[in-house]
Design a protein around this nucleic acid. Structure first.
Length: 219
DNA sequence: GGCCAGGACACCA
DNA sequence: TGGTGTCATGGC
């Protein structure tokens, strides 16, 4: 079985750098991380554009904005009522407790993660996205694609349970480098969307034991 | 018209 | 702890 680092290099060689996370500012990255929950990025971009057109694409401005205005902007992203609550609460907590988001990234990384997880609507995946892509901190984002690929390719077995458990197992074999960890997650998403989802039984995948694993029906 | 997406939460046993 | 329903728009 190839090492995780080999897998990373294979994916990077095949797909090239994914340049995640898209966004011009740290605020935009964090806002996008919340909006992308269970939604396609295409829909998130519409919501981000709506916010931008109303000059609300910053944490400080969202913290002061009327709820109805944010709701209207977020509609294209789905679950917009919840996301409005999450986003306003997140922004207000940043402003009132930290002043600005950059302060979060100066904290001890695990404390910063805990702080984020204490906020309503910020789960482990969103927190790690904010820390890795917004804060340039070495956290690997674990998502459904990662779990599926990991089980197919044997990095993970069916006993691996919690998010943190999976994250620890995978990060142990990867450099503690936010660039690598961020790129790895982006590549897994890219690969899963382009190959695994469109051709779940394909024979042409360049990674042995990925799509054509012939294993139990994990997909 | 049904299913799913770059999740998280509430509720239940 | 683990499983299930809910949120909600847009693309395929």
């Amino acid at each position: 079985m190839s090492s995780l680092l080999n897998i990373y290099n294979m994916l990077l060689n095949y797909w090239g750098p994914q340049n995640w996370w898209p966004g011009e500012t740290i605020d935009e990255i964090c806002i996008g991380a919340i909006l992308t929950q269970n939604t396609t990025w295409n829909n998130v971009e519409r919501a981000l554009q709506n916010l931008k057109s109303k000059h609300l694409l910053s944490i400080s401005s969202i913290a002061l904005a009327p709820e109805e205005t944010i709701e209207e902007c977020l509609k294209p992203a789905g679950t917009y009522r919840r996301k409005t609550q999450y986003l306003i609460n997140f922004s207000q907590k940043i402003v009132s407790q930290l002043g600005k988001i950059e302060k979060l990234f100066l904290m001890e990384p695990n404390k910063a993660r805990k702080w984020l997880l204490g906020l309503k609507g910020i789960g482990p995946e969103t927190a790690d996205s904010i820390l890795c892509y917004g804060g340039n901190l070495p956290f690997l984002v674990i998502d459904a694609y990662t779990l599926r690929l990991g089980k197919r390719m044997g990095w993970l077995n069916s006993k691996t349970k919690s998010y943190e458990n999976v994250q620890e197992i995978l990060q142990r074999e990867l450099p503690k480098d936010p660039q690598v960890l961020g790129e790895f997650h982006a590549l897994i998403v890219k690969h899963s969307k382009e190959i695994c989802r469109k051709r779940p039984r394909c024979n042409s995948c360049f990674m042995k034991d990925c799509c054509n694993a012939g294993k139990q029906n994990i997909y």
